[in-house]
Design a protein around this nucleic acid. Structure first.
Lengths: 222, 222
DNA sequence: CTCTTTCTGTAGTGATCGACACATAAATAG
DNA sequence: CTATTTATGTGTCGATCACTACAGAAAGAG
């Protein structure tokens, strides 16, 4: 990527531009905007709200992010990059699909109630209704983000079938939809101040459905 | 409160007032406003949107409903009065708690996907985020409406215990929270165009969790 | 009929919306 | 240094926000 200083010097320091340097940290400002969108949603968050929370003037906001919609799109990306691991790390490191799903739901119960780190309650993606508010492009972004959850669940379940963990007759799509439904529902309960313990109990019950469907129930019932 | 001109005449014709009669049907206009709030949410729905959908001028709207917030509160009531039966009728007429919960989830799968009557997808109460948008009073109304679901579920489960349908050791609260979570999650999936069949499959899986927890599983597994 | 009451349509209220023009400030390039 | 480039702060744009003043219209009361 980086050539010498003699022949064809390009892109020496990508962060060092020419004019007056930005007086704020872009990622920090983005993090604050993300938190605000996360809590209040797109429509209810005004530019004035954002500039105040980000500690910058509106021209700086528009110079750095383009528009309110573009800022929301970046906030979605920032949300994914910084919070995804909270609910997916255990899922991906689990040895079995059952443990993966169980980790996913248990970690969701903890993260969605703000018990792991100081974050708002509920999932920004699950609770977003930006698509119904007349912003089709952003709505499609959120829809796509929600679809990722389903895809990951189905991928892991298919792997479990090929590894013989669960019967080949298992309805992968339905089971993944079920897990997705439970996790989405958790976000709504979390907004209503449901506790981590309550959501963990919900996750336990969801796993009982899993066990019955996948044939793990016989050895778990007394 | 009001005296008569002779003896004790009160409230002759409550609907017939004195001045110029209203040129629109209040309930019809409220139904249209409800539908709009249901789809777009409180913040994203403007008075201009409402007056257009209701077919009236803004002074008529304010004369009849008071304010945008008061109209939303009435829309919540209208929503309950006109859509509650879609998901609760089978619940209340079921002979067992299991059938009641099953009906509740199955009927939700149908209603939330707009398959029973022509209504928007998802539950207006579950998907409302008005409380996070800075309208505390309305948020409390929605919260209370969501709490009704939990109360009804717990009431029915307690009845099932006293009737011997399910073990006394059953964690009523957790089980009710689980059912509530699944139904809430269904609303989010319904907004993303999940089909009635998909949500019914989710309901079936939720009932498997029920069966395992309540001890019905032994006789259902082969 | 007139008087009173209530609703409707027009036309706006001040406030806030998202977004930007402009001049100035602060950096690099030469 | 000067020239160029980029960011910031002030001020404001037209549009839209929720809401209403006002006058005329349509009903009952007398």
């Amino acid at each position: 990527m980086q050539k010498s200083d003699e022949i064809a010097e390009v892109d020496k320091t990508p962060a060092r531009s020419r004019g007056r340097p930005r007086a704020f940290d872009r990622e920090t400002a983005l993090a604050r905007a993300t938190r605000l969108f996360w809590i209040k949603g797109f429509e209810a968050t005004s530019i004035a709200d954002l500039t105040e929370a980000m500690g910058i003037g509106s021209p700086s906001l528009y110079a750095a992010f383009g528009s309110k919609e573009a800022l929301y799109a970046e906030a979605l990306r920032h949300y994914r990059d910084n919070n995804e691991a909270l609910v997916w790390a255990g899922f991906f490191s689990a040895g079995t699909a059952r443990e993966a799903v169980r980790s996913f739901l248990m970690d969701s119960a903890a993260a969605l109630t703000g018990c792991v780190v100081d974050i708002p309650r509920g999932c920004m993606v699950a609770l977003s209704s930006v698509g119904s508010e007349g912003h089709a492009e952003l709505g499609e972004l959120v829809r796509a983000a929600r679809a990722v959850t389903l895809d990951r669940l189905k991928l892991r379940l298919n792997q479990a079938i090929s590894e013989g963990e669960i019967p080949v007759s298992t309805d992968i799509h339905a089971l993944a939809r079920f897990v997705q439904t439970v996790q989405n529902g958790m976000s709504i309960l979390a907004r209503d101040e449901a506790t981590r313990g309550e959501l963990e109990a919900v996750a336990e019950l969801a796993m009982l459905g899993w066990d019955t469907r996948t044939g793990d129930a016989e050895r778990r019932l007394g």
